[in-house]
Design a protein around this nucleic acid. Structure first.
Lengths: 338, 338
DNA sequence: CTGTTAGCGCCTTCAC
DNA sequence: GTGAAGGCGCTAACAG
């Protein structure tokens, strides 16, 4: 690894560094065809490749953004990442993906690392537990966009699902199909904002339809506790007739339990989930799902961040962008037999 | 964004830049307690954060590696990414994740970008269609490790599944359970090496058990063509009694078709897949799966690359590290009724 | 059209 | 114990 530099190219081609620099940056407005050819030739010959680091140091821009996801194992995260990458690539930006594992400490470490690496901005699916850090970024006008969750009173643009509506859609659909005793299980660890909002949406939908809220039908559990929590709920008198799974991980746990106990869907228990899953169509029975428009969410987040980066002044304050969920009706919530 | 530099800190603390540098790098062997405190104080006061770019430029190491995955939407990729990240973090390295979308052009772009950004090495799930580029990297001794696939005659260490054995395990299991007419569907686009090896493993297992190979039972299809291909296969006389899905995406398509046609598993058609899926346990019937040890594969890849980077000389040549698949027997391949 | 001259922010001898 | 000086590879005026 010899490391050919611009100076080497300049020397071999008998020109100065700046001429080479011009060439590399496609600024040959005033360059003779001949030197152009000569430089081109030399570059190939020496297998010269520019050092972006040096360029970035000079230009104070890395054309790179960071993305910190809560947990990369979630389908939601991957889809978001993929969209963000596509969007950024089009704009000539690169993406550094980091996985915080729902750990505020890791999140902090990554934010600091990314800033030290001079990335031009960061998209975060925040843990919510680094308030001071977030505030510091706002104060120093560092470009940041939140996705999936938000933090109250933080002047950081956030793009997220209309969670209340997502839960509301599910509940209303169930009510319309004759289910009145509806349980909801959410995941404590993840999705702080979403969880609260989804439960609110659930409650509001019930109240608006004159159905009383039974707190026993609401559970926030660790993924590992879902099965047991569901079991307890089903032993209540009367038990819920339908269950709303707060996200894909909960849904999977719910279905595992249903399988073990050989519960019939929907006759013994209707099921509906938030977050589309790969098997919803061919599961028996097919699963009714409230889907997030992940592509649009990711796209919006990228657009927002790039705009803030490019156009430093036009910083949108504390705006929250909400995206509409989509209800995919299948058979796991079919009209109740009465 | 003022951008506090080391010089600023030095000035405010009344010391020279180099002293600050020493401090930042924990080299206070010969530093007075007092200046130490003073520098510490100033750093906090000014909210100074070192510019890693400048440091990397000088040190010729970014302590960052790149990972280029074929397609980030695959569970396999995400799990690999996650493990690599964990492993690298422990070693103080950062990770840049890129998504090639099975497109050699994108792959090329990313390899060049990552090298320009001076990452210390790259882990690639290669498309296989950039031979010249790969060779160039070998020639210039750039640290690279392949995962999932390999490229013949390329002196690049590769860590992958024992694909022959994976398919072999599946076939033998089916044979043992009384299935003789076994079909296999793989995915053309993805997994060049794996596909070939899996089909070989499939054929060998049949031959070794004195079952003749029927080429009509072997299909390489685009994901979108899987349903139709399966349909055609099932119309053969005689039709296969069991189907081996070459990866998770194929399995999902197969199951969709099975659902549409209301085919009974395993009585009408046994099913077995390569790559564990979230729903294998609670699908009805539970699905027999040949699982890849993704964690170990990712871990090995990271270890290898870090070793090559750290210990430039000890470059392992053309080694292929194979990992054993695990057969998770469930009910979709239950003994045939005779 | 091309070369000269300064840095970007940090690290690293080598004097003092 | 600390400071001065040079340089990593590249860019950007400004001359010529």
């Amino acid at each position: 690894m010899k490391a050919v530099t611009m100076a080497d190219v300049a020397r071999h081609a008998n020109v100065s560094k700046s001429t080479v620099s011009q060439y590399v940056n496609n600024r040959f407005d005033y360059m003779s065809e001949e030197t152009k050819k000569r430089i081109e030739q030399t570059i190939i010959e020496l297998d010269y490749r520019p050092n972006i680091l040096a360029r970035s140091l000079k230009q104070k821009s890395t054309t790179t953004i960071g993305v910190i996801v809560a947990n990369i194992l979630h389908t939601f995260s991957t889809q978001i990442i993929r969209t963000i990458e596509d969007e950024c690539n089009e704009a000539g930006f690169h993406v550094m993906v980091c996985n915080a594992d729902d750990d505020p400490e890791k999140e902090k470490k990554y934010i600091e690392m990314l800033r030290a690496k001079q990335v031009d901005g960061i998209i975060i699916l925040p843990t919510g537990n680094n308030i001071a850090l977030y505030e510091e970024m706002v104060k120093s006008k560092y470009p940041v966009v939140f996705v999936d969750r938000t933090v109250p009173n933080m002047k950081i643009p956030s793009v997220m699902l209309d969670n209340e509506r997502a839960a509301g859609l599910a509940v209303e659909h169930l009510l319309q199909n004759g289910y009145e005793r509806i349980g909801i299980i959410t995941n404590v660890v993840k999705n702080v904002t979403p969880r609260v909002e989804r439960i609110n949406g659930y409650k509001n939908a019930l109240v608006n339809n004159d159905v009383s809220v039974n707190e026993d039908y609401i559970k926030n559990l660790e993924v590992t506790q879902v099965a047991q929590g569901l079991q307890e709920m089903l032993l209540l008198q009367p038990p819920p007739q339908a269950i709303l799974a707060g996200n894909d991980l909960v849904l999977i746990e719910v279905l595992k339990h249903i399988k073990r106990k050989e519960i019939q869907i929907p006759s013994e228990l209707a099921v509906i989930g938030i977050d589309e899953v790969s098997f919803s169509e061919f599961y028996e029975p097919p699963l009714t799902i409230v889907e997030q428009p992940t592509i649009e969410i990711g796209k919006k987040a990228a657009e927002l961040l790039l705009k803030i980066i490019t156009d430093k002044e036009s910083v949108p304050e504390e705006e929250i962008y909400r995206f509409e969920p989509v209800l995919n009706i299948r058979e796991s919530s079919k009209r109740i037999q009465s």
